[in-house]
Design a protein around this nucleic acid. Structure first.
Length: 283
DNA sequence: GCCTCTTTTCCTGGTT
DNA sequence: CAACCAGGAAAAGAGG
């Protein structure tokens, strides 16, 4: 399926996931992506995989095409690989959207930047290098079987330099139903809520999928519900994942107080007291 | 093979 | 009408 060899799919993911640029916390994903949101100060050849996805997302938005209508997995590649795709490759990867994408990337290649997409261009270069060396891992780390999720559980993240010297959260664990038992299982890799959280914590790797509504309160909103579901499905190796199903899993979190209900607002969720690692200043 | 736990799948019904 | 939201039920998967 994928235009590139899928051999390094995940390794690639993991690899590029950790090396994206950081752009200022512009309210980018705000209103229909009308605002600027090109985090790339470089040519597409140098984009990371997530910048590629960001570009994808935006081109789709610009053309009013549902982003979930193309398989993002087919663009599981960095800018260099993207730029080497042929017209036919784009068709294969994105069907009828292929030509649009091809046209866009061709223009970008020639202009060397993103003029073709946004008129003018400015990036907070000052912010570009503050990429934290702490790698709290990608939302889709293929965690080695033995690896404990605490390892990449970002109780520490760039904005909140480690409030807790001791990694992870010794406190609450699973207080529901088994008060004194500390974690029986560490399910395959990441839990859904952690996956979501990690996307949120990595805006530079989050191509407009989910957005904070209230950072301090832990309220967030899905912008591309189906795209997130696809991503989750990809991580779980389940191509039939949908937002419908993902949201059911999210609703189970209410009872466990990992999430709090936010009524009346579609696609909006809020982290609950049993969700950790999302705060700017973990207390 | 059994258990626990999380997530998936399906579904009915209500809401925006 | 489409896209969500709420949960119940059952079952799948994974690890212990």
């Amino acid at each position: 399926m994928s235009v590139t060899s899928t051999t390094t799919l995940d390794s690639q993911l993991t690899a590029t996931w950790g090396s994206a640029n950081t752009y200022a916390d512009v309210p980018m994903v705000m209103s229909g992506y009308t605002s600027r949101l090109w985090p790339h100060d470089c040519q597409p050849q140098f984009w990371s995989k997530y910048q590629v996805w960001e570009w994808l997302q935006q081109v789709m938005d610009m053309h009013q095409i549902d982003a979930s209508s193309i398989p993002f997995q087919n663009f599981d590649m960095d800018g260099h690989q993207l730029c080497s795709l042929s017209y036919q490759d784009f068709i294969r990867a994105a069907g009828s959207v292929g030509p649009i994408l091809f046209h866009s990337i061709t223009e970008l290649k020639w202009s060397g930047a993103s003029e073709s997409l946004r008129g003018q261009y400015h990036v907070e270069i000052g912010q570009m290098d503050i990429k934290p060396e702490i790698d709290f891992s990608c939302p889709f780390p293929d965690v080695a079987p033995g690896v404990n999720l605490e390892i990449y559980d970002p109780t520490i993240h760039p904005l909140a330099p480690a409030a807790s010297p001791t990694p992870s959260s010794p406190d609450i664990k699973r207080s529901y139903s088994r008060p004194h038992q500390v974690k029986k299982h560490s399910p395959r890799g990441t839990h859904l809520w952690e996956f979501i959280r990690d996307i949120l914590l990595n805006p530079e790797r989050n191509p407009g999928l989910i957005k904070w509504e209230d950072r301090t309160e832990g309220v967030f909103r899905f912008l591309k519900s189906e795209a997130v579901a696809q991503l989750w499905g990809k991580k779980k190796n389940n191509s039939s994942m949908t937002y419908e199903k993902l949201s059911r899993a999210m609703r189970y979190y209410y009872k466990r107080e990992i999430l709090e209900r936010v009524d009346g607002r579609r696609l909006v969720y809020k982290f609950g007291r049993n969700a950790r690692g999302w705060r700017e200043t973990e207390k």
